[in-house]
């Protein structure tokens, strides 16, 4: 509840933050004016309604999705370092984006314009999970093997990206780097239906599996004794998490650390019961990315990508959590 209130407060705060000069109070007024169909400040309405509101909603969705994805992964693999990106999802998405930004390649022929990067990133981010699922059909994979496979794919994709980037012109190289860092400024109203729809549906499905996820938390043998196939649940949730992550990362780029840190912070407040951990992770992730983006928008000459701020804050925060944690949550 506290985290949810924080997220709402951060939403209104971020409307007044950015290069375009407007007070928080006036920005909120413009927001409600638009909702009421009473637009008196055309410029303000454009910058608040067309740019900042979808951006803020994008931050909420992105933070929530990545944080929930991290919570599920850490639970599935009983590994405090697991997060969506350790499975190669981010490097897959980045390879797709690089193919579009630097090479001008659209993997889906009829897709053109600014949608190419998004579609490429979305499809490529699913490849690592697809490989893991494929392998697991023929050979039983332990959680550790799954993670290591993801890490191997991550390195493979990263090296391909590096080869492409070494010979890239500086302009497209800068664009690719910006994408890699992650920026909520790429989220517009047109992005939200897919982002919010996919996130809502998948988070609800995952939440409905909270009981089974709690069983997973007890270990594979314990799950088996309760009649659940830990491997099957792991594969299903891994596929869901991949789609969840891909649906936001393909728009925003790879925003670091929230998938790792979000669940840890939420766990401090609500413990490891997934019935509480999933919503708490979502609320913290939403608030964290909103606040990070609020800071990012007023940093540098004319703003910085949120990924820079989230990693800058997330890194020390993670160390602080590790130092302060008196007993391991994974014991």
């Amino acid at each position: 509840m506290l985290l949810s209130l924080l997220a709402v407060a951060a939403f209104f705060l971020t409307l007044g933050s950015g290069v375009y000069r407007i007070s928080v109070a006036h920005a909120v007024e413009v927001f409600f004016d638009h909702l009421g169909g009473n637009i008196s400040d055309a410029d303000g309405d454009y910058y608040i309604w067309e740019l900042r509101v979808p951006r803020a909603l994008g931050a909420v969705i992105t933070g929530a999705a990545l944080s929930v994805a991290g919570a599920i992964m850490q639970n599935d693999f009983r590994n405090p370092l697991a997060e969506p990106y350790t499975m190669g999802i981010s490097s897959g998405a980045f390879l797709g984006a690089v193919l579009s930004i630097i090479c001008g390649i659209s993997v889906v022929p009829f897709v053109t314009g600014t949608a190419v990067t998004m579609v490429n990133a979305f499809l490529f981010s699913l490849i690592p999970t697809a490989i893991i699922v494929l392998i697991s059909r023929f050979r039983k994979m332990t959680p550790a093997a799954m993670i290591l496979t993801g890490v191997a794919i991550m390195f493979l994709f990263s090296s391909i990206c590096q080869v492409i980037m070494v010979t890239a012109p500086s302009e497209s190289l800068a664009d690719a780097y910006m994408w890699r860092v992650g920026d909520i400024g790429r989220v517009f109203w047109s992005s939200l239906p897919l982002m919010s729809g996919a996130t809502a549906v998948i988070v609800v499905i995952l939440y409905s599996m909270a009981g089974k996820l709690n069983v997973m938390y007890a270990g594979d043998r314990a799950a088996m004794t309760l009649g659940e196939s830990a491997n099957r649940i792991r594969i299903v949730t891994l596929v869901l998490v991949s789609f969840l992550t891909a649906s936001v990362v393909s728009y925003t780029g790879t925003i670091g650390f929230i998938g790792l840190v979000g669940p840890h912070v939420a766990r401090i407040f609500v413990g490891s019961d997934n019935r509480y951990l999933i919503p708490a992770s979502a609320a913290f992730g939403a608030a964290f990315i909103l606040l990070a983006d609020t800071v990012a928008k007023v940093s540098g000459v004319n703003g910085l990508p949120v990924g820079v701020i989230s990693s800058m804050v997330g890194g020390p925060l993670f160390i602080w959590i590790l130092v302060r944690q008196r007993k391991s949550a994974w014991a």
């Binding site: 290069v19 740019l51 400024g185 928008k297 540098g300 703003g303």
Partner: peptide
């Protein structure tokens, strides 16, 4: 030359 890092970089 300075890259516009946000879409409202020229708003003012």
């Amino acid at each position: 030359s300075t890259k516009m890092m946000s879409t409202d970089a020229l708003s003012n």
